[in-house]
């Protein structure tokens, strides 16, 4: 579903991403781990066509993003770290507006169902988003993805700043989406525990390189942490040596 081929991105002289090769099939959740500036967000931006690659290709559902940046928007949904919505509109209105922009006009009843599936309390739907917590806004974000019947979902640090309960609920929702709807998920995160918890595969990035990829089921949490530290320190050491 999602594919990166020999993908590189440089900003002026700084290399943000270096020769990424990655394939994420439908129904798989791929978690990207890495320090700040490792290239996680750049990868997501490249997949969504928010920025163009310097070298290489990005395919979403077999469509080249650089060539048809608009086509692929039908297939994807995006949930940033902080889902920002129109504060003066209600959750329901925000969903109606944004899903409408994606081309489908749902009835209010249908929209309510999406919001419910995303876990938003019914009484909250008619309140202005300005009064929502971060978690509630994220649920609206998921409802938008649901309403769009997205085939690929991009999550950028979705659980940072959420309390453990909300974070857990969020993970279950994403898992459910992948399992029942066959959505391919690319999730960038700092949270090793959450990555192991929700992901099928985990990639560790460092300084623009995808350094290692492991199956979530194959590693224990402590092993994952070791691996993470090793990757980062190793690169660090290489840089020191150079």
């Amino acid at each position: 579903m999602l594919e990166a081929i020999n993908l590189s991105k440089t900003y002026n002289t700084a290399i943000a991403l270096h020769s990424l090769n990655l394939y994420i099939p439908a129904g798989e959740i791929f978690c990207l781990l890495g320090a700040n500036g490792a290239g996680k967000t750049t990868t997501i931006n490249l997949f969504m066509g928010f920025t163009e690659p310097t070298i290489g290709e990005v395919l979403v559902g077999g469509i080249n993003v650089a060539q048809k940046p608009h086509e692929i928007k039908k297939l994807i949904a995006y949930i940033p770290e902080n889902v920002m919505l129109y504060p003066t509109l209600t959750g329901l209105e925000n969903l109606a507006y944004l899903s409408g922009l994606s081309g489908t006009a749902y009835s209010d009843a249908e929209l309510v169902v999406f919001l419910q599936r995303a876990g938003l309390q019914k009484e909250a739907m008619k309140r202005r988003v300005g009064e929502y917590s971060k978690g509630m806004r994220q649920k609206v974000g998921i409802a938008i993805a649901l309403a769009k019947h997205a085939k690929a979902l991009f999550l950028d640090e979705p659980t940072s700043g959420l309390d453990p309960l909300a974070s857990n609920e969020f993970s279950r929702l994403i898992r459910g989406l992948a399992d029942t709807e066959g959505v391919a998920v690319l999730m960038a995160t700092h949270d090793l525990f959450r990555a192991k918890e929700v992901g099928d595969r985990i990639g560790i990035m460092n300084a623009g390189h995808l350094a290692s990829v492991v199956k979530a089921g194959d590693v224990s949490p402590s092993r994952l942490e070791e691996l993470y530290m090793e990757t980062i320190l190793q690169k660090h050491a290489q840089r020191e040596a150079a």
Partner: peptide
């Protein structure tokens, strides 16, 4: 500034015509 640009750009409406 209110952060909704991300949501709009990831929707498949054309942003320029919007």
């Amino acid at each position: 500034e209110q952060g909704t640009l991300a949501m709009l750009l990831s929707s498949n409406a054309r942003f320029d015509s919007l």
